[in-house]
Design a protein around this nucleic acid. Structure first.
Lengths: 249, 249
DNA sequence: TTTCTAAATTGGTTGGACCATTGTGCCAAT
DNA sequence: ATTGGCACAATGGTCCAACCAATTTAGAAA
């Protein structure tokens, strides 16, 4: 079961070395998410370090969501593990207040504009057809439901990111998007949130289809600006309500 | 020194409870980034848990970048800690090839431009003085060593990000920066990497000090452009060397 | 006052023990 | 033969008591 791959660690920062050895083990053994890792006690023995050190290393992986521990059962791989992984822990103060949501939008403004410009510079004809298909589905959903549909909207944006040729955009913006939407059924009480952004989806597509990076960046910025306006409107509403209810405090 | 705020934990998942108690301690005590936390041994005694459990909890905070441990010295707060923090650790697969480094620069281009613009719109007079101090130290290091000094350079950029009013910039760009520097002693064999970016640090500062967001964005873009040029130059060098050495393969 | 050195402090690691939860397989009852 | 329950083994979680290694501090020496 345990091959000879696990060799004693030697260098500094024991638990770093343990993680490095674990990466080697996981990749060489071809483990995939869901598979079980060796026991803590086994790892400790194989790596010639104490169980405490192994536990510290696994705790770090657990915090990064790479691994899940179940008492009495074992430790299970939760995500793909490769060498040269880059860890980027994002911490936001209290995800649902106005400032935090605004912060995610500021990140999106910088990244979506850049992604749109890169996409316009790099799309293939097939990419353009694919993006237009997503756009049409979004527009259909909009007219059926008389409002923005989060899923179709996200599919469209995702298509743009993926044609940017840089996978980092998708992963980072996806995290921002999730933070933003985790708390938005009706974020800050604003109904038909994102309604104003609708027309800019087509203008953005047109700029990309025309392979015009400058125009694409401009349209992406306009789109984000409408979302920011919605958010500010929501914050104003919230403030008004708070003032109205102040007597209860 | 240690007030009565730390009370014994009781409920399930000990280290979760420890972290919760620590949040209370940090907020009640008004600790800010840079401040030192109580000793592990003290925390263990106050919280009525073993030092092992305290260490496991601190390890998790460390992995999230909230805390930094220095052997022989202590554990220091590295970021603002509040109740209701939202953590979203991202792990990205990355390589040390030309494309991966270029990808990090594309992210930095979008974010550094945005951060510079926001900083120019929001800096206080004290912030400006602080940034200028970092700039001067960087320039001194440059002239002493006849080349860019990574640490002082990073300090300057960090100061800009922190005055943007959005902590996410620092968190994301720090990850990009780490990935970029993980492989760059002399990245791709290019000596005096970043040399060309030197003058744009002062022009960027001037734009921020003038509170001119548009100019700040432009200068930040110029700065990144020089780094991209260096990287492309390095890739060309590498290709040439590979061709020259092809006979050995 | 400055500089060097020894001791105290603090995080890092170890080994061993025990607890709590889960999984497994045997055995008995049906 | 099937099912249900139970005892036991395996595994992660916690604790303790040391000792190691890096750092800081305080005091001695110059």
């Amino acid at each position: 079961m345990i091959s000879q791959i696990l060799s004693p660690v030697h260098t500094s920062s024991r638990d770093d070395a343990v993680l490095q050895a674990l990466v080697g083990f996981v990749t060489d053994e071809g483990l995939v998410p869901g598979d079980r890792l060796p026991t803590e006690r086994v790892l400790a023995e194989r790596l010639k370090v104490s169980r405490t050190t192994v536990r510290e290393a696994l705790t770090r992986w657990q915090e990064l969501g790479l691994v899940e521990r179940r008492q009495g059962s074992g430790t299970y791989l939760k995500a793909a593990v490769t060498r040269n992984m880059l860890h980027m822990p994002l911490t936001l103060a209290s995800g649902n207040d106005f400032n935090s949501l605004m912060h995610t939008l500021e990140i999106r403004r910088g990244l979506e504009a850049e992604a749109a410009a890169l996409s316009a510079a790099r799309v293939s004809d097939a990419d353009i057809a694919m993006i237009e298909q997503k756009l049409i589905r979004m527009e259909e959903a909009f007219h059926e439901r008389h409002g923005m549909s989060a899923d179709e909207d996200w599919d469209f944006h995702l298509a743009v990111f993926r044609t940017s040729g840089n996978p980092l955009f998708e992963q980072i913006i996806a995290a921002m998007y999730e933070m933003f939407h985790r708390f938005w059924e009706h974020p800050l009480g604003v109904r038909d949130f994102g309604h104003a952004s609708f027309p800019y989806h087509r203008t953005l597509f047109n700029a990309i289809a025309a392979r015009d990076p400058i125009a694409a960046r401009a349209e992406a910025l306009k789109l984000i600006a409408t979302v920011e306006d919605d958010l500010k409107r929501g914050a104003a509403n919230l403030k008004k309500q708070t003032q109205k209810n102040r007597v209860h405090i």
